[in-house]
Design a protein around this nucleic acid. Sequence first.
DNA 1: TCATTGAGTTGCATTTTGAAACTCTTGGAG
DNA 2: CTCCAAGAGTTTCAAAATGCAACTCAATGA
Lengths: 149, 149
Amino acid sequence: MDVTLTAGRNWTDPACPVARTVDLVGDRWSLLIIRDAMDGAATFTEFLERLQIARNILTDRLRRLVDHGILDRSATGGRRHTYQLTEAGKDLFTTVVALRQWGERHAFAPHETHSVLVDPQGRPVPVLRIRGEDGSPITADTSHVRRAT
Amino acid sequence: MDVTLTAGRNWTDPACPVARTVDLVGDRWSLLIIRDAMDGAATFTEFLERLQIARNILTDRLRRLVDHGILDRSATGGRRHTYQLTEAGKDLFTTVVALRQWGERHAFAPHETHSVLVDPQGRPVPVLRIRGEDGSPITADTSHVRRAT
DNA sequence: TCATTGAGTTGCATTTTGAAACTCTTGGAG
DNA sequence: CTCCAAGAGTTTCAAAATGCAACTCAATGA
């Protein structure tokens, strides 16, 4: 992201990377826009149809995501535009997968069906796990945050 | 989470696990409350002080998270309570780490310092990567969503 | 017993959302 | 060339969520 955008900003908690990310994409719509962009959506109308979002809100969120360097907007004649994920945007893939996998585990009743993320060969993507350099599992209890110096 | 909670709910997109998760924790405060719970916060006042959140909003978010089975509330005499992450809540660790690592990479200017997540030995937690069963890296471009059947 | 602290309510102002109607531009169909 | 439809927004206004300050209420504990 552009340095000038991080510099003058009013962060909820300036030293915490979690808080900064939440400030940038932590609302109901931004993450779903990013999800759909990863799934191939690229124009205003495509997002509009997939999300059932109000037009003015979509306008606002797209602009915000472009401003934050997550989406790239290119004109394709007239008012027509194409929105593409930037490298930073694509890098949110891990986050989206983490949200997805948690939802699969905890937001569906046993009998409810849900969509599944698969690799190019059609095999389900394995569950993300956090491990130390030596491969040992790390949890919220066994890790801790070292404050910025 | 309690099945009765998933059943009658008004989801933004009922078949999508990402959307369900975002419906449950995708607002500015919930994820930061969860972050602080993972960092040891347990009482109303502790959350209040760490987050600089309005009291009524904190009340609402804590109640919501308890209702969604992410936090557990236990009385400790009078109006005093302790909030603890449930198993589902602890399982959001992966998501919080993903948000944190994205923020570290994209929401800080090169010269800015930020806190670091470390394992019990004090070593930084490695970057989360999504890999197929065979260990090959998977990105937004190489994966896709198989719709619910 | 009486002030203090934790954990909320309540009332009101400010912001953000959402829905619907309106605008502007441009690539075609005729 | 003219007119129309489609894409991509604005604008307007009502409804909901947020934020702040002041107020309540129960249990310590000096």
